[in-house]
Design a protein around this nucleic acid. Structure first.
Lengths: 191, 191, 191, 191
DNA sequence: GATGAATGAGCGTTCATTCAT
DNA sequence: CATGAATGAACGCTCATTCAT
């Protein structure tokens, strides 16, 4: 009960600071201070800053999956499945803006690119659900016969963009707007 | 004639280095060296690194507009206009990967967010052509009646994503794929 | 019986690590780990790292004496006594390279110099046998009438140097070479 | 005239501090302070601390050779040549105690060992004069037929030891004692 | 104007030591 | 007694910026 205390505080502080200020706006000393922890303590839990960054990312991903898969019914029609996943994801980002900003920071960095490249090469994408969905859709001639990468771009591109705009205050997303946006994404990929 | 010479060299070197290595992979001394210029000289043309970064961005934007507006016919049908602008933009990014990488670096940084917020508030979007296009489309009931920000996200989100994927080598975009992608974006925003 | 157990383990681990990696290649945490002991436990037996280092040295010296005094016959001729002590010492170093490396590390450090200075002032040399030998030799006009310090230098200088060279692999000392070397040392100090 | 100013100050400060306190008793910040130089300035002249240490060593060696070779007559008898080199070396150490202490620090460190190993493998010893002397002596049957390494140990071992003792104040070397000591070394290696 | 040597605050990281358990 | 998590001062090093030439 007291064990993960410090580690959690470090993770929380790092998430907050990196999400808000970027990787180089979050020095280890500042993370330590915000976690109410000695500077050296971080290194008991994470080998170095890179490892902290990577583990933080993996933690976020691990939290994300169960959320969007909740109540997911793989036997429903493709459109419905897509809307479920898309809205769940968008809602998650809106409700967890720190997570979202962190994921963006990570993806736009050498770490993120390399990480993604590794996942591309190793077939073990975490995005299997989406991949399955797209491949199903293509073979059923419901979704455009595009390379998967393009379909991902057509789906996630707008999704991430609106999440960012909402978090930065450029637009106020409500339930209706969320649904319409994801429906528009579907219009983009469906035949 | 010799004044802009050095300034141009500095801008070129900065673009190259920042696009390839990110902001903190491009120290001022390295930029100076690549520009064949003294380290102090940069400060005659740019107050500090932040200003250099911002002016570089504005220069890129200024170069971009004429390119995508070339042969643009504002009296053609909306779909055709959208396809023209979208494919021109995507082609530009693919042919000028350095510019694209720099724009991405800039957007994912405190500078970028603040810059964009200023532009939002000041109403003086550089994206007037797109704004006009979307507003036309909405009033003609050809484009979905969404907030402009959402329409931007549905259009540029996928566009930037595929450009990034192409440049990182995750997909090979040819003319056909470019057209299909922009058409899919249109499907996303049209009624 | 369990008390000296841990202390011994600490001493053994410290000797090993310091001999192989030097003082700053042997952090307390590493010593503790190699001794299968908690990091704080070391401080129950040694006030701090400096004390550990000094006591380790004294322990080594204490082990050394009985070895070289074994079968030492103080009534034999001076030359024979010198050869006995010299070869015994050199053999000990060769057979216990860890001890030797540690002694060298110690001597080449602020600790070593201060330690030696204290011993010089306090007259309580541990090297009494050698001192007796030299003083005997001087009064019998067999050994050169040099200050003791010089005689020590002429005897131990080469001895330590060849031991080091052997351990570092620059020369392979066998029994013959050991004897010849010590005889050469004797040639250096005898009249 | 003003160019090597800073570099020289850095070298001087580093020599002083390392000679007196050892490598880890001479942090870069302290060296900078003693050289009246900013901390970063050192890195304009030396890539890192290791390079500073190595270049300092090479500088000392370069200064040493001319000194001991001054008035050296390679056609004099072996004994005379040995005494010349030995006393010159010992005198140099006594007159330049900082140089001596630095050389000792260097030799007793990973740098020193590796450096020496390299020199052993590559035949281009800086100690060629001594090597020539020893090889001459062996072939003329004036010097004992020992491996060179042993002869070096018999010569330099006492020499370095007495230099150290003098500098630390354990003995006061005058001209007579210097000569006697080197003569005793000769007695050690001659047949 | 142009230079680049000089600066020093700030970074990521280590490790001797302490102390609550 | 023994532990090992926690600490924070100190380290080597980088780099945006300045200023004498």
């Amino acid at each position: 009960m007291s064990k993960p205390d410090k580690r959690d505080e470090i993770v929380r502080a790092a998430l907050e600071l990196i999400a808000e200020n970027g990787f180089h706006g979050a020095p280890m000393a500042m993370i330590a201070e915000h976690a109410n922890v000695g500077a050296g303590t971080i290194y008991r839990y994470f080998e170095n800053k890179d490892v902290l960054i990577a583990e933080l990312y993996q933690g976020l991903e691990a939290r994300l999956y169960p959320v969007i898969l909740e109540k997911y019914a793989p036997d429903k029609p493709l459109r419905e499945r897509f809307l479920h996943l898309g809205t769940a994801l968008l809602r998650y980002f809106i409700e967890n803006p720190l997570d979202f900003r962190y994921l963006e920071q990570f993806h736009n960095s050498p770490y993120g690119v390399e990480y993604r490249r590794d996942k591309m090469l190793g077939e073990k994408e975490g995005c299997d659900i989406f991949r399955d969905l797209f491949e199903d859709g293509i073979s059923q001639q419901v979704i455009k016969d595009f390379p998967l990468v393009i379909l991902f771009a057509l789906s996630f591109g707008p999704l991430l963009a609106v999440a960012r705009d909402h978090i930065l205050g450029f637009v106020e997303l409500d339930e209706a707007l969320i649904t319409w946006t994801i429906e528009a994404c579907w219009d983009g990929i469906r035949r």
